[in-house]
Amino acid sequence: MFKFTGHTGVVVPLDISNIDTDIIIPKQFLKRVNKIGFGKFLFHDWRFLDTNQLVKNKKFILNKKIYKEASILLTRGNFGCGSSREHAVWSLLDYGFKAIIAPSFADIFYSNSFNNKLLLITLHESEITVLFDIAKSNPGVNFDINLVNKTISVNGMVFLFEIDDFQRFCLLNSLDNIDLTMKHLLDIEIYERGVSDFLLKRTEFKS
């Protein structure tokens, strides 16, 4: 599986606070049974002026040609608030985003993102403002994210970020909860055999 050691990509500056999961993907698009195909509904009510997605909102930043291949989202505080729907993360990933940078994230959204290997980077509000200034002054600029060194580089400037060591380890090694469980498969098998032997002996004793 692909190991996330870093990513360089176009950043889209979405200068809005408190973007909730219903804005990220409205509830009427949650009917799919897998994680694929949600990207086209991302920020639906902001990207389109009609329910059939025939008329794009030309004023919305994601509809600007220069951000067509954007893979890093720069936004404001409390991103992902609202409901606990995991589809919000799926839609961001399916659209093509690899990382989101903000001063804060909703707790459940943060957990869902980690479980789906979407990198969330938290920086101080003042640093976020500097990054917005750079992104807005240089439309289509690339941010270089290095997860090994925990840095964001742009225009000769370097920003350091912190991330939980365990989460960083999992992202660097492309491990999810199932992968982590499988690493202990032998221990699980030994435990299960022990339980089976105990139950068998208990049955024999009673008989």
Results as ranks from 00 to 15, higher is better:
residue 22 D to F: 04
residue 56 K to W: 01
residue 34 N to W: 01
residue 34 N to R: 11
residue 33 V to W: 10
residue 55 V to R: 13
residue 31 K to G: 15
residue 65 K to F: 03
residue 31 K to M: 09
residue 61 I to V: 14
residue 32 R to H: 08
residue 73 L to Q: 02
residue 48 F to G: 04
residue 53 Q to S: 15
residue 33 V to N: 14
residue 37 G to V: 10
residue 10 V to M: 06
residue 60 F to A: 12
residue 1 M to H: 12
residue 57 N to S: 09
residue 32 R to I: 03
residue 15 D to C: 12
residue 38 F to D: 11
residue 42 L to H: 00
residue 51 T to S: 12
residue 5 T to C: 09
residue 67 Y to F: 15
residue 65 K to S: 14
residue 24 I to S: 00
residue 26 P to I: 12
residue 53 Q to W: 01
residue 31 K to D: 13
residue 32 R to F: 03
residue 38 F to T: 06
residue 30 L to M: 11
residue 34 N to V: 08
residue 28 Q to L: 09
residue 49 L to R: 00
residue 64 K to W: 09
residue 8 T to C: 07
residue 70 A to G: 10
residue 54 L to M: 10
residue 49 L to V: 05
residue 35 K to N: 12
residue 25 I to Q: 04
residue 35 K to Y: 04
residue 20 D to G: 02
residue 18 N to F: 14
residue 10 V to T: 15
residue 23 I to A: 06
residue 22 D to N: 06
residue 14 L to I: 14
residue 65 K to D: 14
residue 23 I to S: 01
residue 4 F to V: 13
residue 9 G to Q: 02
residue 23 I to N: 04
residue 55 V to G: 05
residue 4 F to S: 11
residue 70 A to H: 07
residue 39 G to R: 11
residue 32 R to N: 11
residue 48 F to V: 05
residue 52 N to R: 13
residue 46 W to C: 07
residue 11 V to D: 01
residue 54 L to W: 00
residue 61 I to L: 15
residue 16 I to H: 11
residue 48 F to T: 02
residue 36 I to V: 15
residue 57 N to F: 02
residue 51 T to Q: 10
residue 34 N to I: 06
residue 39 G to D: 10
residue 60 F to M: 08
residue 47 R to F: 09
residue 45 D to M: 04
residue 54 L to T: 14
residue 24 I to L: 00
residue 30 L to H: 15
residue 42 L to N: 02
residue 8 T to A: 14
residue 19 I to W: 01
residue 24 I to N: 03
residue 3 K to Q: 15
residue 31 K to E: 14
residue 30 L to A: 01
residue 22 D to W: 05
residue 53 Q to A: 15
residue 3 K to W: 08
residue 50 D to G: 03
residue 54 L to Q: 13
residue 7 H to A: 02
residue 57 N to A: 03
residue 11 V to E: 01
residue 50 D to E: 03
residue 50 D to R: 02
residue 25 I to T: 10
residue 55 V to N: 14
residue 42 L to E: 00
residue 18 N to K: 02
residue 49 L to G: 00
residue 22 D to T: 03
residue 33 V to A: 13
residue 42 L to M: 07
residue 19 I to P: 00
residue 29 F to W: 13
residue 49 L to H: 02
residue 27 K to Y: 09
residue 30 L to D: 05
residue 62 L to T: 10
residue 37 G to D: 08
residue 6 G to S: 07
residue 30 L to N: 06
residue 18 N to E: 11
residue 37 G to C: 11
residue 33 V to E: 15
residue 7 H to N: 12
residue 26 P to E: 11
residue 61 I to H: 04
residue 66 I to E: 13
residue 26 P to N: 11
residue 45 D to E: 13
residue 67 Y to C: 08
residue 65 K to Q: 13
residue 70 A to I: 12
residue 16 I to F: 12
residue 31 K to C: 08
residue 45 D to V: 04
residue 66 I to W: 05
residue 39 G to T: 12
